[in-house]
Design a protein around this nucleic acid. Structure first.
Lengths: 155, 155
DNA sequence: TAAAATAGTTTGAGAATCAAACTATTTTAG
DNA sequence: CTAAAATAGTTTGATTCTCAAACTATTTTA
């Protein structure tokens, strides 16, 4: 093993260690930022749920439960809270009246956009000073992770 | 706005969207992988705690609680479980007998290394085909995120 | 050396989650 | 056609997780 490969190994370790704690901190910051805004009644978990419903408009309760890997009962409880607070609406599907389609209220969409903007700011900060090809590399790294997740999940 | 900046914007959106769900999936995979191994009695949260104690050997209960942002009571409960299952040891500090220093048992270290190896595999997969400078860029992106987190946290 | 401070544990209450039972509706099989 | 099976979502009851506050043991301070 030469100096260069040692250096790369150190970089790998740095990246591996850094990744572990960053997400928790981001979650915490997101919650505290959102609570400083006009959306004071929202927890990190509820924010996550609003994000998912905003990203996948009019999905059914079961589909959202599967996406978030929550039981149907748990999701029902969370939806009750978000409906009461005025962030989401349940729409009974008229073709199949067993089905509920979920959508954001206008208040919910405001929250969604504020949250999305925060994410964009984070990504912009992360890629500050990167040129086009470097950004492409970053994108590739994420695609690699997604592939890895897909492989491990299905094997 | 020209074609290139539109493309960069699309890349930003891709990266922003991809990041949201990846972490949850990784957590879930980590737990399911660990449960297929000889460490069947470990949850994702316990794995996280073992990782933290392994990374910060002999830290006090209060320090670990602060790192993980758990109340002292919650950490005590979690430590009781991990001690009962044989993954950690409480060591009373002989200089100041109020203090408990936390360390992994040999079983705990085995789990820590297995978990760390999984992370390393993930990072290697993520950076597959990247050369030295590209890895440096990746490292820089994470440093940028850490800076951003630091700024937002303290302001 | 008595009071204050500190580290960790215990306690009691509240929130989050799950699986299973349940209700309402639609699809299927005879 | 219609009775049985299947499906979507809700409710229920139990369990687990978490927190803040009270508490115990120990050390520091005045």
């Amino acid at each position: 093993m030469n100096a260069t490969s040692n250096e790369i190994k150190a970089d790998y370790n740095f990246i591996s260690d850094a990744l572990v704690d960053i997400y928790d901190q981001i979650m915490r910051i997101e919650e505290s930022e959102i609570r400083k805004s006009r959306f004071k009644d929202i927890t990190a978990k509820e924010l996550h749920l609003v994000h998912t419903i905003g990203l996948h408009d009019l999905k059914t309760t079961s589909e959202v439960a599967r996406i978030l890997r929550l039981s149907k009962g748990t999701l029902t409880a969370n939806l009750n809270n978000l409906e009461r607070k005025g962030y989401i609406t349940r729409i009974t599907n008229q073709q199949d009246r067993r089905i509920i389609n979920l959508t954001l209220t206008s208040k919910g969409r405001l929250l969604y956009r504020a949250h999305y903007a925060f994410h964009r700011k984070l990504v912009e900060q992360c890629l500050k000073g990167f040129d086009g090809p470097a950004i492409k590399k970053m994108k590739q790294a994420l695609i690699n992770v997604e592939d890895f997740i897909g492989e491990v999940s299905t094997k």
